[in-house]
Design a protein around this nucleic acid. Structure first.
Length: 418
RNA sequence: CGGGGCGUAGUAUACCGGUAGUACGCGUGCUUUGGGAGCAUGUAGACCGGGUUCAAUUCCCGGCGCCCCGACCA
């Protein structure tokens, strides 16, 4: 895409009402726009990143047998009353409204009730199971205090997957598969090296649940990590009995702040019992379905990557999340031949299947470089009078800062190898 | 929800009880052209409501909004 046509505008200064690094960087780089506290719009560059994150998540969820649904934001109170989760005293994050036709609606903050309700209509036999349903959809949570840019907002996407299993073993097997898929998501998003599967208390149905926590000073959670053993726990699991079960002692653990980027949870039969989701087993006996829920917030994932990989001044995107893999910059000066060479290179790269952001704007070189640094596309390609004279292009890896010169024909292979 | 801070052009900021200034941005012209360049010129602003006062952007009260700390986060 030609940058002269791209809806974007970078700025040197961050707005004074944003303190968090992710919001400052993403606003300065023109990725997001704040509407109100805890509510952000995504501009074209930001939307590309968000969609790339969702693409990664979809691929990994499909890879473990997930099937994509799309469930609504508007929620019927009736089903939530059956699980005792409609009352504001029980769930304090509800946004609720009234129908003009009479009656109430809620704005979905999670979807256990909704998906379980669907399943009661479709699941009758052991032959219908197991089932893994997910969707990526808007969640609304009436947070008392939105904070930290896009990390904790009142409206956000969430990928929530729900598993429906016949036996405890079937459930546990999938649970582990999903945990592995989650780690792949975080690795592909560039934060795998800082993300721990963290033991948390399991609630009524299992010994532990798990959170995925990414080490970051910007985090609002505290975890206890042993990097050598690869074990991390949250505060609820600091007791000696739990720790010995996990093979660590308290003094082997280091306290760190972290961002919760995902969680997985065994639900047992809590929802299937309340909503009467049962199946007939091979002997014709009615059994409650065993459920699990598994969440990742793409917006928070994007914010976490900004926090962890961004520098104080500039974004640095991993290839799979970057709005474009390549940022082509032309330095034209007084030589219009450079512009036509750059146009030609842009067309050739595009035809080779490389998605290029081409800075064809009529601005000075310094501004183009500064914007490229801020936007943080992983590969920067410069074409100028100088590079043309030398018969190639200048290629810079944004993450390492290393620059090399290469002939144009080598470029596509180089980009694909990144 | 408890505590604290802050609301001035698109953005960042200054001053002031008496016609609101600077920088960036944006427009125009000329110069410049590998790291947010220069000169000239133009454009654009006091969150809302009430009170005090001859006069309020400034002081007082209320509201609304935003940020931070804590609590909360199924």
């Amino acid at each position: 895409m030609r940058q002269s046509h791209l809806f974007t505008k970078t700025r040197k200064e961050a707005p004074k009402d944003e303190v968090s690094k992710n919001a400052q960087l993403l606003i300065r780089a023109g990725f997001i726009h704040k509407e109100m506290a805890g509510v952000y719009s995504y501009l074209p560059l930001g939307l590309r990143v968000l969609e790339n994150g969702m693409r990664i998540i979809r691929e990994e969820m499909n890879g473990i047998g997930g099937q994509e649904f799309f469930m609504p934001s508007l929620q019927n109170p009736e089903i939530w009353k059956k699980t005792n989760r409609w009352d504001d005293d029980v769930v304090d994050v509800w946004f609720k409204s009234e129908l003009k036709a009479g009656g109430e609606v809620g704005f979905a903050w999670t979807h256990e009730e909704t998906i379980t309700g669907i399943m009661t209509e479709y699941v009758q036999s052991y032959k219908d199971l197991p089932l893994y349903a997910y969707h990526i959809q808007n969640k609304f949570r009436n947070e008392v205090r939105a904070k930290s840019g896009i990390m904790r907002t009142r409206e956000f996407f969430m990928k929530d997957l729900y598993s429906f299993s016949r036996t405890e073993k079937e459930h546990t097997d999938f649970y582990e598969k999903c945990a592995a898929a989650y780690m792949r998501v975080f690795t592909r998003a560039g934060i795998g090296h800082k993300t721990y599967r963290t033991f948390a208390s399991g609630g009524a149905f299992s010994k532990f649940s798990h959170e995925f926590q990414t080490l970051s000073d910007a985090g609002e959670d505290v975890i206890y990590v042993n990097e050598k053993k690869g074990v991390a726990v949250n505060e609820e699991v600091l007791g000696a009995a739990d720790l010995s079960e996990l093979g660590v002692t308290r003094d082997e653990l280091e306290q760190r702040t972290s961002i919760e980027v995902g969680n997985i949870f065994s639900l047992g039969t809590k929802f299937s019992s309340a909503l009467n989701l049962t199946f007939k087993d091979e002997n014709g006996n009615s059994q409650p379905v065993i459920m699990g829920s598994y969440g990742i917030g793409p917006n928070r994932l994007m914010g976490t990557v900004a926090e962890v990989l961004g520098t104080a001044e500039n974004m640095v995107w991993p290839k799979e999340l970057a709005p474009f893999p390549v940022h082509l910059i032309s330095i034209v000066g007084k030589n219009p031949a450079v512009a036509s060479e750059a146009d030609r290179l842009y067309d050739e790269l595009t035809e080779s299947g490389v998605d290029v952001l081409y800075d064809d704007r009529d601005v000075r070189a310094g501004e183009k470089f500064a914007d490229a640094d801020l936007i943080g596309i992983p590969t920067r390609v410069v074409i100028s009078e100088k590079t043309i004279a030398e018969g190639g292009v200048e290629v810079t890896n944004r993450a390492s800062g290393q620059t090399q010169f290469m002939p144009e024909p080598a470029l596509v292979d180089y980009v694909n190898a990144q």
